[in-house]
């Protein structure tokens, strides 16, 4: 009977739950939700692919292929942390459900030829990255960057 007071309180007070699809919750800014990839900012450095714990990102700098296996991703947000140009963003929007293994494929600009094109991105030093960003930005002067979402 000790629960009685709580129950009467519940009866008289507002609902603690909400009717979800009709009433949306405001998600905190830090929430790791929907994955956003801004193609034009990518410099094909392969940082995200190397640091990803599930290895769900595949990058081929030669062809400019950027691929992500949606079902393998665990949304830890490491790729967004390590991305030097900020082309990977975790938005605070709920992720839509998917029903079958899906691959998100983007075709980016292939990386400009370096001295050693086969070299791993791990060994790419900071200066290279910065120059690469500048190059990319110089190449692309479109006012609004096309944004792709899953």
């Amino acid at each position: 009977m000790l629960m009685g007071r709580t129950i009467i309180k519940n009866l008289l007070h507002k609902y603690a739950t909400r009717l979800h699809p009709y009433e949306q919750r405001i998600l905190p800014d830090k929430f790791r939700g929907r994955f956003r990839f801004i193609i034009d900012k990518c410099i094909m450095c392969r940082n995200c692919a190397v640091k990803c714990p599930t290895k769900c990102i595949t990058i081929d700098p030669e062809t400019g292929l950027w691929e992500r296996e949606v079902m393998a991703c665990v949304y830890c947000g490491v790729c967004a942390d390590v991305c030097p140009t900020g082309c990977i963003i975790m938005t605070n929007v709920y992720r839509p459900p998917i029903t079958e293994p899906t691959k998100l494929t983007f075709m980016c600009t292939p990386r400009p030829k370096k001295k050693k094109p086969t070299e791993e991105a791990q060994t790419m030093n900071k200066k290279d990255v910065e120059t690469a960003i500048k190059q990319q930005q110089a190449e692309r002067t479109a006012p609004s960057l096309p944004v792709s979402e899953e």
Binding site: I7, P28, K30, F31, R32, Y75, C76, V78
Partner: peptide, 28 residues
């Protein structure tokens, strides 16, 4: 009803996790 009440309280803690770390349980 006790189950529901306790989980309601738990929700507050998970909201803290979500706001501070970005996820409710697997906070990474």
């Amino acid at each position: 009803s006790l189950f529901m009440a306790l989980w309601r309280v738990r929700e507050r803690i998970m909201d803290i996790n979500e706001a501070t770390a970005g996820n409710r349980v697997i906070i990474s």
